[in-house]
């Protein structure tokens, strides 16, 4: 028994994953040698990560390709066996792959499909109903609701191979949610979709999380997904968590400066006249963006307003979040 009165739905402690592989030499002779003696190599895909997730959270895993996001999701869904550390989801150890656990979550991978390619999506839904042992009545209710929410009524009887990528992803989501999972793992759900389809999927995820209180972990390398959906973000790079917290705080923590956007009228300004206030992000005669340290921003704005420059308007803005993230990954 733990003393905690508050139980997290997902608890991850010191979780690591090391992949083992063999060094491959180019050339026939080297390949032949490789049959007898191979050099074993290791990569640490995930390094001692810790996090807890509460019920109903919608949390974003952000990081460049190969950062360890998918590996983490695979460990949480029981596909991969952790090298060390521990993961508990709903009180289960995922890699034991107990049926009671599997019935309570779903995994959707943007690049892999569970729908039967040659059949209408409806056939895959019926199959999933049996696999997850969903009672008839509940199945019908869930299906009707999901079909309505995702607006896929007209494509249920069309062969999956004939659907667009966006339509297919919608159907994948229906298939994954028919058994009302408590937790949904979404690995790059918007990958390869056009802007409109991305937005549709995003809107659905947002609504579903809000209405059903389903805990959702989303990985993406599209900033837009994370910005739109997640209050909390976990940034992973080279297998390590480098940030875990509110998206807004990330800006305060990492963006040490704000941006002054100033418009000028009359004859405008010369570069030399504004350069002294800070680093210029953008410059033309009538419109200038200047990076100014957070603490000095008021001071500088005052100085500009009280100078003899022909200021028409002045705005103090936060740095764009994309900019912040890009800077973090560059380090």
């Amino acid at each position: 028994m733990t003393k905690n009165t508050h139980m997290s739905i997902i608890e991850v402690k010191n979780l690591s994953k090391v992949y083992e592989y063999y060094k491959k030499q180019p050339g026939l002779l080297a390949s032949f040698k490789g049959l007898f003696k191979r050099e074993k190599l290791f990569t640490e895909a995930v390094k001692e990560i810790d996090f807890n997730i509460e019920e109903g959270e919608l949390i974003g895993f952000l990081g460049p390709n190969g950062a360890g996001k998918t590996t983490t999701l695979k460990m949480l869904s029981g596909i991969l066996y952790p090298t060390s550390g521990e993961a508990k989801v709903l009180g289960f150890t995922p890699h034991k792959r107990q049926k009671e656990y599997q019935k309570q979550f779903a995994l959707v991978m943007g690049q892999k499909n569970q729908l039967w390619w040659d059949l209408p999506a409806m056939e895959s839904f019926i199959l999933n109903k049996e696999i997850y042992e969903v009672p008839d009545k509940e199945f019908k209710e869930n299906l009707d609701e999901l079909v309505e929410l995702l607006d896929v009524k007209d494509i249920l009887d069309v062969q999956v191979r004939k659907l667009s990528l966006g339509q297919r992803m919608k159907c994948e989501l229906v298939a994954a949610l028919l058994h009302k999972p408590k937790i949904l793992f979404l690995d790059e759900p918007t990958i390869g979709l056009d802007v409109v389809a991305q937005k549709n999927i995003r809107d659905f995820i947002k609504k579903y999380n809000r209405e059903k209180k389903t805990t959702i972990i989303l990985t993406s390398h599209y900033m837009e997904d994370i910005k739109e959906l997640c209050k909390r973000v976990v940034i992973i790079d080279h297998g390590k968590i480098i940030y875990d917290g509110a998206l807004n705080d990330l800006i305060i923590e990492y963006a040490t400066f704000k941006v002054l956007n100033i418009t000028f009228n009359d004859a405008g300004v010369q570069k030399e006249q504004v350069e002294k206030f800070g680093k210029l992000q953008k410059f033309n005669q009538y419109s200038v963006s200047i990076e100014v340290e957070r603490e000095k921003v008021k001071e500088v704005a005052m100085a500009i307003l009280s100078s003899d420059l022909p200021v028409d308007d002045i705005l103090i803005d936060e740095v764009d979040i994309d900019e912040v993230i890009r800077k973090i990954f560059k380090k």
Binding site: K74, I79, Q102, K112, Q114, I131
Partner: peptide
């Protein structure tokens, strides 16, 4: 090879 096995491993099947 293509990791389609994942789909079976995460479902009660």
């Amino acid at each position: 090879q293509y990791g389609e096995l994942n789909i079976y491993l995460v479902r009660p099947l």
